[in-house]
Nucleic acid binder design. Structure first.
Lengths: 222, 222
DNA sequence: GTCTGTCCGATGGTATACCAACATACCATC
DNA sequence: GATGGTATGTTGGTATACCATCGGACAGAC
């Protein structure tokens, strides 16, 4: 028996529970801007749109609420959270600290597989189109945080990214940057490959400082 | 009408929803160590213990799940999250960054009312007994983060503190510190009162470095 | 005795129905 | 036009039912 590949036989039933699917769908919809800030999330309407029962919708909304994407007003119900520059600024500042620190730690512990994973993500960012860039960018940072061993910081950054997701889409698509986005990423990867922690931190901080500027312009233009 | 104090007439019904009460109770119970790590949280049992219906319990568990205090195993149900040093170490590192940064910003923007609020919290820490210390310490940091304008960072720190709450109780109670806890807090407050950002950051970082050491000893002693 | 298959209870996941409290909009009355 | 009542929509909360899964108990076959 032991010379038989168990993976071949494995029946993989989707362990995905209905709630998880509904959560991902709704979160993605909010992040994609399908529900603008301030939109009321009426439970029964969502039941129809998602095709699930009210219990599922309610639990999903509780999760999004603690994630900060939704806030519930007393006697009014859940509403898609609005985003202003005061908040976004704080988010970028926190990301700057956590990502800078992770990049430095990553540079100190990185090995060949890490370099390869970063290069791969970078390639996807370069020639991938539209939303591929979004996923590849996320992957790029995931590699950095994981290699640094900063799993909890990565959780936090992901949650923060959910909040400013609309801005992120805008800044990633911006064409008028002083230095193109992929170029900045490449610098980060290069610093890590050179095992130069200080340079990696600097590269990340520069990247985020610029992203914050772009976000500010976009937000105040609204 | 307008010369009548509306506050006098106001009937303040507790806007607290049942779910919020249940959430606070259960979270407090976990933090207090009433449910040790690994304990199964059986829905129907919690219904009896809390006196609410299963829907409420489920939504509460979803919140605690995204807060990181509870994790749900597939086909097994929710379980109180365990805490190991690898995680706690990351938490203390993140707190060091966020709290250090907040203290520095606070020192640069503080005014007389902030100094007074910090002094008040400090007094409570000094002569308050047992769990008063816990609340007063929280208050102390809340003042710092709020004065710094770092509201989102404060949210994050609070959530992180939930995760390491047991450790926090231990380290706050530790008597064998090189420098007593209140003394360290006083140094932070003094640096802020002197508007010395760098010193405030340093004081916070020292405080947390020591707390992390105490936590490590406590955790590995288990 | 050990292995195998089956059954049952406990549990979580999902869905539905129902009621109460509250807020808003609308409408009739004066 | 202002007042008051009413209708409606929405959330909060509860109860209940059904299904899938898991683990253990039990009985039968080797």
């Amino acid at each position: 028996m032991e010379h038989m590949a168990p993976d071949e036989l494995r029946i993989d039933r989707p362990p995905q529970t209905l709630r998880v699917i509904a959560l991902d769908r709704l979160r993605a919809a909010i992040i994609a801007g399908r529900f603008p800030g301030g939109t009321r999330l009426v439970e029964r309407t969502l039941c129809d749109q998602l095709g699930v029962s009210r219990s599922v919708v309610r639990e999903v909304i509780r999760v999004l609420e603690t994630e900060g994407l939704v806030e519930t007003l007393p006697n009014r119900g859940p509403v898609v959270a609005r985003l202003d520059w005061a908040q976004a600024r704080q988010v970028y500042e926190i990301r700057r600290q956590l990502e800078g620190n992770a990049a430095e730690a990553c540079a100190q512990r990185a090995d060949a597989p890490v370099d390869a994973a970063l290069a791969e993500a970078l390639a996807s960012i370069r020639d991938g189109g539209e939303d591929r860039v979004f996923a590849a960018t996320t992957r790029f940072y995931e590699v950095i945080f994981t290699a640094a061993g900063h799993h909890i910081a990565w959780e936090i950054v992901q949650r923060l990214n959910g909040r400013i997701s609309r801005l992120r889409a805008l800044t990633l698509a911006a064409q008028d940057r002083a230095v193109p986005g992929p170029e900045r990423m490449a610098r980060i990867a290069a610093a890590i490959a050179a095992r130069d922690g200080a340079a990696a931190r600097r590269a990340v901080e520069e990247h985020l400082t610029e992203a914050a500027m772009l976000a500010q312009r976009a937000l105040e233009g609204e």
